[in-house]
């Protein structure tokens, strides 16, 4: 009898609970995410140096420092490996872009993906790398790694102005989907958001990063120098746009030269006609 009573009570309580749960469910906000909080303050962080002695471990267990990667311009991807959404998309879009440009991995640039999730380890890293399927051409110049000491990761992301936070509800990290381009001197040259990013933007960012602060360029061919001169970075749209004043200036120089050239030709022709007329007049006389 007693048991029956208890069962009844439990049933009522359960019903009440589920009703409350049901009612509460609709009141949970869809997203508490404000994109402004994770926006990088580019003006503040561009040009700032990064520490070079952070130690990372790749999936094979090899240890290396950030400085080891900085003999070339470095594309730094901050991501986490348990992520099944945007992170692999960020890495994949970088992969696509790098496959689509002429610069040679290893010779012209390196790439490094590191995790800012303290729970990531070599296991999740290996899984992620397998999942990503980096082509061989890029593989040699692209490391995926975790920090040996998580403190390093905190100071690295802070130094880059890269804010992220864990959303317990969505069970994902909110973070900027940006690539960070470092110069061989270890300075931040460009943040490139992957949304709407084109291959050209990646290429130009690498070229920009290759021009070290001291003006030393690893990529010295004229084509690249020309390319970089023709574009300038548009902070508002987050991509490179044509450097119109350069073309307008060059066009007006050409028009000046043409002005001189054409007037010379016209004048020469007129001069010749005049001479002919004079000769004819002389002959007529």
């Amino acid at each position: 009898m007693k048991n029956l009573f208890l069962t009844w009570i439990m049933a009522v309580v359960l019903c009440f609970y589920s009703a409350v749960c049901h009612a509460e469910y609709g009141r949970v906000p869809k997203s508490e995410f404000d994109p402004e909080t994770i926006k990088i303050d580019e003006e503040k962080y561009l040009g700032s140096p990064v520490e070079k002695n952070y130690v990372f471990i790749n999936e094979k267990g090899r240890e290396f420092t950030l400085g080891d990667m900085l003999d070339k311009p470095l594309i730094l991807v901050l991501s986490y490996y348990a992520c099944d959404g945007v992170c692999s998309a960020v890495n994949a879009s970088l992969m696509n872009a790098l496959s689509g440009i002429g610069l040679k991995p290893g010779r012209d640039y390196r790439a490094l993906t590191v995790s800012f999730d303290r729970n990531d380890g070599l296991e999740s890293l290996a899984m992620f790398k397998k999942h990503l399927q980096i082509p061989e051409r890029l593989g040699a110049a692209w490391e995926l790694a975790v920090a040996k000491n998580y403190k390093d990761m905190e100071s690295l992301t802070r130094g880059l102005g890269y804010n992220f936070f864990w959303s317990t509800r969505d069970r994902i990290f909110f973070h900027p989907n940006a690539l960070v381009f470092l110069s061989p001197g270890g300075r931040v040259v460009r943040y490139l958001y992957t949304a709407g990013m084109s291959n050209k933007d990646v290429e130009l960012s690498i070229l920009d990063a290759s021009r070290d602060q001291a003006g030393k360029s690893n990529i010295t061919d004229l084509g690249s120098a020309f390319l970089i001169a023709c574009y300038s970075y548009n902070f508002k749209e987050g991509k490179y746009s044509l450097n119109y004043p350069l073309f307008i200036g060059a066009g007006s120089l050409l028009s000046g030269v043409a002005l001189l050239g054409i007037s010379m030709v016209v004048m020469a022709r007129q001069g010749r006609n005049q001479k002919k007329n004079k000769k004819q007049m002389a002959n007529d006389k």
């Binding site: 300038s232 548009n234 902070f235 508002k236 004043p245 350069l246 200036g249």
Partner: peptide, 20 residues
């Protein structure tokens, strides 16, 4: 926005054109 760096312009290009 030819010379507005925030909008893809370039500050230095004017100085180059001017002195050119």
């Amino acid at each position: 926005t030819f010379f507005n760096p925030g909008m893809g312009g370039d500050v230095l290009i004017y100085q180059n054109l001017f002195w050119f």
